[in-house]
């Protein structure tokens, strides 16, 4: 008996087994990290995910569940970032997990902090949590306190919050979360984030389980990122 996940890839729903899910997720992480700094990042990754969905559908036929081999085959067709690079004008960010040994400049791997909303740590839209991470404030409560103060004293707190909410992108992927905190993106950091995500996931699962107690099967959405799912992107 194996656990399966329900995912949304290229706006198509798939049922995928656990091994295949982990494989696909780490592959997509390398893809997103590779193209993050490339112009047209959203469109490129969207096209790649749509093509992967198409490859899965072709391979599945009448089978209901995407397995590890399906993911392997799709990756073989699409290729890994170290196999791209044939387009000099739009080279992506070197990926530390795959570019080792190709002689690329290692210093590029350090990323500066970027301002993201953090919906997972947030109370409303994650704006305060994102600002706290960006400015290195240990607890978002102080940022929230600041918003409360400027709301009471001048009334601009709420409009300011709403504007920031609209402007700041949500940290969707593990790479985003690292960039938000300003940590360099490397294998050990990614695995740290992934571990945290799984803990987060299991918390959510417990909550969900309590809510759904009585129902036999809790539906597990990939990464519990409803926002990402709505936008049709897996990561």
């Amino acid at each position: 008996m194996n656990k399966v996940f329900n995912i949304n890839l290229g706006s198509y729903p798939f049922t995928i087994d656990e091994d295949a899910y982990n494989h696909l997720r780490s592959y997509l992480e390398t893809i997103h990290n590779h193209f993050r700094q490339t112009e047209g990042y959203e469109e490129i990754t969207h096209d790649i995910e749509a093509r992967l969905a198409e490859l899965f559908l072709e391979q599945l036929g009448n089978r209901p569940i995407v397995n590890f081999q399906d993911v392997e085959d799709a990756i073989a067709t699409m290729g890994r970032p170290e196999e791209f690079g044939a387009d000099p004008m739009s080279e992506g960010t070197p990926d530390p997990s795959t570019d080792a040994g190709t002689g690329k400049d290692k210093f590029k791997l350090k990323t500066g902090k970027r301002l993201y909303r953090d919906p997972e740590e947030g109370m409303i839209g994650g704006v305060a949590a994102g600002l706290a991470a960006y400015f290195g404030i240990p607890d978002p409560i102080w940022v929230r306190f600041f918003f409360v103060v400027i709301t009471i004293s001048g009334g601009i707190g709420i409009p300011l919050y709403l504007i920031l909410w609209a402007l700041m992108p949500a940290a969707k992927t593990a790479g985003d979360r690292l960039a938000m905190r300003g940590e360099p993106i490397n294998i050990s950091n990614i695995s740290k984030i992934v571990t945290e995500e799984f803990e987060h996931l299991s918390e959510k699962m417990t909550e969900l389980g309590e809510e759904l107690s009585g129902k036999k099967k809790a539906r597990l959405k990939m990464g519990m990122r409803t926002r990402a799912l709505r936008s049709g992107s897996l990561l």
Binding site: I31, F35, T38, E39, G40, E43, I44, D47, I48, R51, T77, M78, G79, R80, P81, E83, F84, G85, A86, D87, M89, S90, G92
Partner: peptide, 16 residues
Amino acid sequence: EVKEGTLYPLLTRLKN
């Protein structure tokens, strides 16, 4: 010969 993943960034750039 290239992987399909090579083509998407190139096509997006040429389209833009």
